[in-house]
Simulated assay, not measured.
Amino acid sequence: MGRQCFKAWLYKWLPIFCGCHCRPDRSFFYKGEQFPVCARCTGELGGILLALLTWRLGRPGPVWSAALLLPLAADGVIQLRTAYESRNRRRLWTGLLFGYGLANLLFLSAAWVFRQGYAFGKTL
């Protein structure tokens, strides 16, 4: 797959995968070209990748991982209920924390299910 073909594929499917609105006023631009997803989704994807890369080095527990979801939720609720509108830098950081926390919760729950299944299998 060539570079242009991959880029076209990415720009088509990444917003669908993320459920992103892709609004230009809430997106980053590089060399005059809009990112395929908004600032918040960019942060979420970065957080997920960061969690994947750092999983073996150490991770927060489930309570801390759940707490990392709160800044994005708070930012969204505040924007919904008031005239405040956050800037892309805040959207990026809250998305990064959310993606990292969400991925950690997913990995922690998958590891727990694996351990429980393994322990149950040993009793058979």
Rank of each mutant, 00 (worst) to 15 (best):
G2I: 00
G2C: 02
R3M: 04
R3V: 05
Q4F: 06
F6E: 08
F6V: 11
W9Q: 12
Y11R: 07
L14P: 08
L14Y: 07
P15L: 07
P15H: 01
I16N: 09
I16V: 15
F17A: 15
F17W: 15
G19A: 02
G19T: 07
H21N: 10
C22K: 14
C22W: 00
R23A: 12
P24R: 15
D25A: 14
F28L: 13
Y30G: 04
Y30A: 15
Y30V: 15
K31I: 01
G32K: 08
G32P: 05
E33N: 06
F35E: 02
F35N: 02
P36Y: 02
P36N: 01
V37G: 01
V37A: 05
C38Y: 06
A39K: 07
A39F: 03
R40H: 00
C41Y: 07
T42W: 06
G43R: 07
G43S: 06
G43N: 04
E44W: 00
E44N: 02
L45S: 11
L45M: 15
G46K: 02
G47E: 11
G47Q: 09
L50I: 12
A51H: 03
L53G: 11
T54P: 08
T54K: 13
R59D: 00
P60K: 10
G61N: 14
G61K: 09
P62V: 08
V63N: 06
W64F: 14
S65V: 09
S65A: 15
S65L: 11
A66K: 00
A66H: 00
A67R: 01
A67Q: 05
L70M: 14
A73L: 06
G76F: 02
V77H: 03
V77R: 08
I78Y: 09
Q79L: 02
L80G: 11
T82A: 05
A83C: 00
A83S: 13
Y84W: 13
Y84E: 05
Y84R: 11
E85Y: 03
S86E: 10
S86W: 05
S86N: 15
R87Q: 13
R89F: 13
R91L: 00
R91Q: 00
R91W: 03
L92A: 10
W93S: 07
W93R: 06
T94Y: 03
T94D: 01
G95P: 12
L96R: 09
L97E: 01
F98P: 01
G99W: 03
G101R: 10
L102W: 06
L102N: 03
L102I: 07
N104K: 04
N104F: 03
N104Q: 13
L106T: 11
L106V: 14
L106N: 04
F107K: 04
F107W: 11
L108G: 10
W112V: 07
W112K: 15
F114G: 07
R115A: 15
R115H: 14
R115F: 12
R115D: 15
Q116K: 12
G117P: 09
Y118K: 13
A119R: 14
A119I: 08
F120L: 10
T123C: 00
T123F: 05
L124E: 03
